[in-house]
Structures are given as C-alpha cells and as structure tokens.
Computed example of a mutant assay.
Amino acid sequence: MGYASVMPEQRYRVAAAPGDLRLVQELLNTSAKNGGRTPDLLDAALPAAEWLSAYGITGDSPGISDLRRLRDVVRRFLLGAGPEPGEVTAAAPLVLHPDGTVGVAGEPNDIGALAGRILLAIRDAQLAGTWRRLKLCRNPDCQVAFWDSSRNTSGVWHDVRTCGNVANLRKSRARRSASVIVDGS
C-alpha cells in the first residue's frame, strides 16, 4: 500500500474536514509526526509523487518545495503565528471568472493549481466561520490536523485516548508531586 492511498483519516484516525477544507487538512498531515516515526510525505520523491497523484499531479511537477513552504505557513498560522512580512506562501494562479467567482487558472494538474485550491479553501472557510474548527493537536510531538466537531469547538487533542491521556496523566502526576512538596512529606 502506497503513502497516497492512506488519507489522513486513516493515517491518524481523525475525522476528515468537510468540503475543500479536507485538502488543507490532508496537506497539513503530510508532515512528519512523533519525532519522525511517521515520515514526511513531501520530503522524499516516491511518497511525494504518490501523494500528489491522488490529486492528478505527476510526481515530477516542479514546486514541491513551494507546497512544503505553504504547508509550514498554514501550520504556523494555526499555531497562532502568521507568515513573516513579505513571505510568499505559494505561486497560486487565481482568476476572476465572468460570473464573478474566483477560481484557479492554468493547468488543473500542477502544484500551483493545488496551492490555489488550498488558499481558496482557507479563505472560504474563514468567510463561512468554519476555519476555527480545523486545529492542530496540542501535543507538541503530534500536531496532527483534525476537525473539531465538538459543539463549542473546545477540542484540543486529535485523539483523547492517545495524546489527551498522556498529557492529562503528566499534569496529574505534576500536581501530586507538587502537593507532596507543599505538604512537607
């Protein structure tokens, strides 16, 4: 089974974001996780080609470094830090259609068009108010992109059983340890 045949909801057991925002989630989840135990799908030629082929893009397409840079900028943005002033995030050819809609220009099967679709998906989600539901797991070793379907958008872990339990156990042990020191025992 190739890398591209395992989409993020299978790779990390997360619910897929709806609509075009799923593409943003999938891009974010191509990065390495767990100290490199889960590989970065855009760092090596074969997994990058397999991942891109899921979107009809040939593996030898130029611009993979632009796509990695876009992924990193979106990741930083979700972590609360935006791009550096003047930073170019992607060469995304956008066009205004006669009906007034904005779309991606040029060849639909190149990385620039994919970057354009990603940027438009982010913009559309921001306008619809759904962007706040796409989050990164709070576990710094994980940071899997997940769709927060909780009623009040309070989710912080991509999986409470794995990342959440580990963090909560650490906090509990730290509180008990601090309690012992304060009590003088």
Rank of each mutant, 00 (worst) to 15 (best):
T89G: 14
P39D: 00
A121E: 03
G86F: 03
C137S: 10
G155F: 06
A128K: 10
G129W: 08
A54V: 09
A92F: 00
T89I: 15
P39K: 00
D72K: 04
L46Y: 10
T130L: 12
A44Y: 14
I118W: 07
A54N: 06
L134W: 11
V102G: 13
I111D: 11
P83I: 00
P47K: 01
G56Y: 05
W51S: 14
I118A: 12
V102R: 12
A54Y: 05
A121S: 07
T38I: 15
R151T: 11
L70N: 08
R151Q: 13
C142S: 06
S154V: 06
P140I: 00
N139R: 05
G103W: 00
L127Q: 14
D148P: 06
L79N: 12
G155T: 01
S154F: 04
E84W: 06
T38K: 13
A90P: 05
R117M: 02
R68S: 08
D66P: 06
L127H: 08
I122M: 15
D148N: 11
G80V: 02
G56M: 08
P47G: 02
A121G: 08
G129P: 13
A113S: 15
S149Y: 03
L78Y: 08
S65P: 03
P85T: 01
L120R: 13
L114P: 15
L78I: 03
L136T: 11
D148C: 07
R117Y: 01
R133P: 07
R138Y: 13
G86H: 10
G112Y: 02
P140H: 00
G63D: 03
G59Y: 04
L67M: 10
H97Q: 15
T101A: 14
T130D: 11
E87M: 14
R68I: 01
L136N: 13
A48Y: 13
G82Q: 01
G112A: 05
R151P: 13
D99W: 01
W131M: 12
R75A: 10
A145W: 02
A48E: 09
G155C: 07
P62M: 04
V104E: 12
R123T: 07
P140N: 00
D141R: 11
L120A: 10
A128H: 09
L79D: 13
D43N: 13
G86Q: 09
L42C: 10
G100P: 09
G59A: 06
C142G: 09
G63W: 01
N109H: 13
L96N: 12
T130N: 05
A44D: 15
R76W: 01
N139M: 08
V104W: 08
V102S: 09
S61P: 11
G80S: 06
S149H: 11
A90M: 14
S150F: 02
A125M: 04
A125G: 08
R133S: 03
P98K: 01
V95C: 14
P62E: 06
A45H: 10
P83K: 04
A48K: 07
D124P: 04
D99H: 03
D72N: 03
A90C: 06
V95Y: 12
A81T: 14
D72R: 05
V88H: 12
R69V: 02
A105Q: 04
S150N: 06
H97D: 15
D141V: 00
I64L: 14
S150K: 09
P83Y: 00
H97I: 01
G82M: 02
A125E: 00
T58W: 12
P140R: 01
A44Q: 15
